[in-house]
Amino acid sequence: KVLVLALYDYQEKSPREVTMKKGDILTLLNSTNKDWWKVEVNGRQGFVPAAYVKVL
C-alpha cells in the first residue's frame, strides 16, 4: 500500500472529494489522473489535488 503526506490543508468542495489537514498520512488508491488522486483518509475515500500531497 502506498502512503502520501498532505502538504497543505484541503477542504472538500464536492461529495467526491475528501478533507485533509497538513501532515495527515493518507492511503493512495489511484494516481492515474495527474491532477486529482484518489485517497483514503479517516475511513473515507475521495479525491484530493495531486499537487497537495507527496508520496512517502
Rank of each mutant, 00 (worst) to 15 (best):
K1I: 13
K1E: 14
K1W: 07
K1F: 13
K1Q: 15
K1A: 15
K1T: 13
K1G: 09
V2A: 11
V2K: 10
V2H: 14
V2T: 15
V2P: 13
L3D: 05
L3N: 07
L3T: 11
L3Y: 14
V4D: 00
V4T: 03
L5D: 01
L5S: 06
A6I: 02
A6M: 02
A6F: 01
L7P: 01
L7K: 05
L7T: 05
L7S: 03
L7R: 04
Y8D: 12
Y8S: 10
Y8E: 12
D9Q: 03
D9I: 02
Y10C: 01
Y10N: 01
Y10L: 01
Y10G: 00
Y10H: 05
Q11S: 15
Q11D: 15
Q11L: 13
E12H: 10
E12F: 05
E12R: 09
E12C: 09
E12Y: 04
K13C: 13
K13F: 06
K13D: 07
K13G: 11
K13V: 12
K13R: 15
S14R: 09
S14Y: 07
S14Q: 08
S14V: 05
P15E: 13
P15M: 10
R16F: 15
R16P: 06
R16T: 15
R16A: 14
E17Q: 10
E17A: 06
E17I: 03
E17G: 10
E17C: 06
E17M: 05
E17K: 04
V18G: 02
V18I: 13
V18A: 06
V18P: 01
V18H: 03
V18T: 08
T19D: 04
T19K: 04
T19H: 04
T19P: 07
M20D: 00
M20C: 06
M20P: 00
M20T: 03
M20I: 14
M20L: 10
K21E: 06
K21S: 12
K22W: 04
K22V: 11
G23W: 05
G23S: 03
G23F: 05
G23Q: 02
D24M: 10
D24A: 08
D24H: 04
D24E: 15
D24T: 07
D24R: 02
D24S: 06
D24G: 03
I25D: 01
I25S: 03
I25V: 14
L26Q: 01
L26M: 14
L26K: 00
T27P: 15
T27A: 09
T27Q: 14
T27W: 09
T27D: 06
L28M: 05
L29F: 04
L29G: 02
L29A: 03
L29W: 06
N30K: 07
N30P: 03
N30Q: 13
S31C: 13
S31I: 09
T32M: 11
T32Q: 14
T32P: 04
T32I: 12
N33A: 12
N33V: 06
N33M: 09
N33Q: 12
N33R: 08
N33G: 15
K34Y: 07
K34V: 11
K34L: 09
K34F: 07
K34A: 14
K34H: 13
K34I: 11
D35Y: 12
D35C: 10
D35H: 15
D35K: 11
D35M: 12
W36F: 09
W36D: 02
W36P: 00
W37Y: 12
W37F: 08
W37A: 05
W37P: 02
W37N: 02
K38S: 10
V39D: 00
V39L: 04
V39E: 00
E40D: 12
E40V: 07
E40T: 07
E40G: 06
E40K: 06
V41G: 11
V41D: 05
V41W: 08
V41Q: 11
V41Y: 12
N42V: 09
G43A: 08
R44I: 10
R44C: 06
R44T: 08
R44D: 05
Q45G: 08
Q45A: 13
Q45I: 12
G46M: 05
G46S: 02
G46R: 02
F47K: 03
F47N: 04
F47D: 05
V48M: 01
V48S: 01
V48L: 02
V48E: 00
P49R: 03
P49K: 04
A50G: 06
A50T: 06
A50S: 11
A51Q: 13
A51F: 11
A51C: 10
A51S: 09
Y52S: 10
Y52G: 10
Y52A: 09
Y52H: 09
Y52C: 07
V53Q: 00
V53G: 01
V53R: 00
K54Y: 12
K54I: 14
V55H: 08
L56V: 10
L56I: 13
L56D: 04
L56C: 07
L56W: 08
